[in-house]
Amino acid sequence: MKRTATALLLSTALLFAATGCGGDDSSDAGSDGGNKSVTLTLNWVPYGEHAPFYYGLKKGYYAAEGIDLKIQPGNGSGNTIKQVAQKQTEFGWADSPALLKSVASGMPVRSLGSYLEKGPASVEFFADKNIKTPADLKGKTVGGTPGDALYATFPAWLEKNGLKQSDVKVVNVDAAGKIAALAEGKVDAIMGFFHDQAPTIENKTGKKVEVLLFADYGMNLLGTGLVANTETLEKDPELARKFVRATQKSWTEAAKDAPGAVSAMSELAENEPPAEVLTKQLALALPLIGTDAAPGVNTDAQWSETVDLMARYAELKNPGAPTAYWDASYATQG
């Protein structure tokens, strides 16, 4: 199990932020004197998608905005959002479908932008299964976790691609056990986030993994993004603006320097994946950002599609407009 970073690790991270020892952008790093301590809780234990945050920490982008950033691991998007709602963490990094469900349940939270505009939801399998299209899933067993958005929308995704629900046998598997179920041959495929899991599975098994993305076959759900408490946004909107500004810069610059982002995460994160796995995960995550806008800048149409899919297939009650879940005013083109 991953653990929260130690005090020594955090001291090292802040030293980098204050002195600019991390690289060429040292001029961007501000003094940590008087900076505000801010915690970001991830959606899961550290993996490649999170490298831009560590890159921004090392380069001093957060310090330049007056923020002393602490990054801590999470235990699922739902739990991260709950921590934001209960003010146990200033900001969260969580999956957008989970954010929609949380808002619908009454939690005082909003998205400040989804950074993975092309959702990573997928069906993953070993290459030797010879699955090339959704039609090839007929007669196969697929592991999924009840309660998550992938599981909820999977039947509709099958139907959208010409299959009946009865054509595929769905096996209920705990989230922590899906990779083992696939590796041990208990299922032919699993539902999951390919950019995280596929490199991990390949590293563990030595076998090539292939995927079918929901988004490539007619169903895109926005992926992970920043989450804040509505009271924080009301009382200290400037903090949110600064945090989003530093995060946008971190993601923009990390996309230009993936090796540097991997190096920063390897140095500052605790119990992160091996560097080769981390590198593959980040390489798969970056194209999901999209190219039409700055990271975290979304459109009403993108959010409307996700809201509609969740309302139709994942029991999102009284869905309302995208603005019920997402505040577009914080993530700007810069």
Rank of each mutant, 00 (worst) to 15 (best):
Leu15Ala: 14
Ala29Phe: 05
Asn298Ile: 03
Thr279His: 03
Thr4Trp: 01
Ala311Lys: 06
Arg3Gln: 11
Lys2His: 05
Lys118Thr: 08
Gly92Trp: 04
Gln302Met: 13
Lys118Phe: 12
Ala285Gln: 14
Glu234Leu: 11
Leu9Gln: 14
Leu221Gly: 05
Val187Ala: 02
Glu234Trp: 03
Ser27Gln: 04
Gln86Leu: 13
Glu49Gln: 08
Ala311His: 13
Leu40Ser: 15
Leu99Gly: 01
Ala121Val: 01
Cys21Gln: 01
Asp95Val: 01
Gly192Arg: 04
Lys317Ala: 05
Leu69Lys: 09
Asp28Met: 09
Val170Glu: 12
Gly33Tyr: 11
Pro146Met: 07
Gly33Pro: 00
Leu8Gln: 05
Glu305Gly: 00
Phe125Pro: 00
Ala64Gly: 15
Ile289Leu: 01
Ala275Asn: 12
Asn172Glu: 14
Gly334Ser: 09
Ala275Arg: 15
Gly34His: 10
Pro97Asn: 11
Ala64Met: 09
Thr41Phe: 03
Leu100Pro: 00
Pro97Met: 01
Lys59Ser: 00
Leu158Gly: 09
Asn79Leu: 13
Leu150Cys: 13
Pro273Ser: 00
Cys21Arg: 00
Ala175Ile: 09
Glu117Gly: 13
Lys59Pro: 03
Leu213Asn: 12
Pro73Arg: 08
Leu278Ser: 10
Ala135Pro: 05
Ser329Ala: 01
Tyr62Ala: 12
Pro295Ile: 06
Val262Asp: 11
Pro319Arg: 00
Glu65Leu: 03
Thr291Glu: 15
Leu10Asn: 10
Ser122Asn: 05
Thr247Asp: 00
Ala176Val: 12
Tyr54Asp: 07
Val173Ile: 15
Asp25Asn: 06
Ala135Cys: 02
Val168Trp: 07
Ala254Trp: 15
Pro259Thr: 00
Ala152Trp: 11
Gly177Asn: 07
Lys235Asp: 03
Ala152Arg: 07
Ile201Ala: 03
His195Leu: 08
Ala261Glu: 14
Gly74Phe: 14
Asp196Lys: 06
Phe194Met: 07
Leu116Gly: 04
Gly206Ala: 10
Lys207Cys: 07
Asn43Phe: 12
Arg110Ile: 03
Asn172Phe: 07
Phe193Cys: 01
Asp174Tyr: 00
Thr39Met: 05
Ala156Asp: 12
Ile289Met: 07
Lys132Phe: 06
Lys186Phe: 02
Pro319Thr: 00
Ile81Gln: 07
Tyr217Lys: 04
Ser166Lys: 13
Asp196Cys: 13
Lys101Ile: 15
Arg312Cys: 08
Ala98Lys: 07
Ala331Asp: 02
Thr200Trp: 10
Asp24Asn: 12
Leu286Tyr: 14
Val277Pro: 14
Asn161His: 14
Gln83Lys: 08
Val123Gly: 08
Phe194Cys: 08
Ala258Thr: 11
Thr205Gly: 04
His50Thr: 01
Thr200Asp: 10
Ala331Cys: 10
Leu40Met: 14
Leu14Thr: 02
Ile190Lys: 00
Met310Leu: 09
Asn203Lys: 11
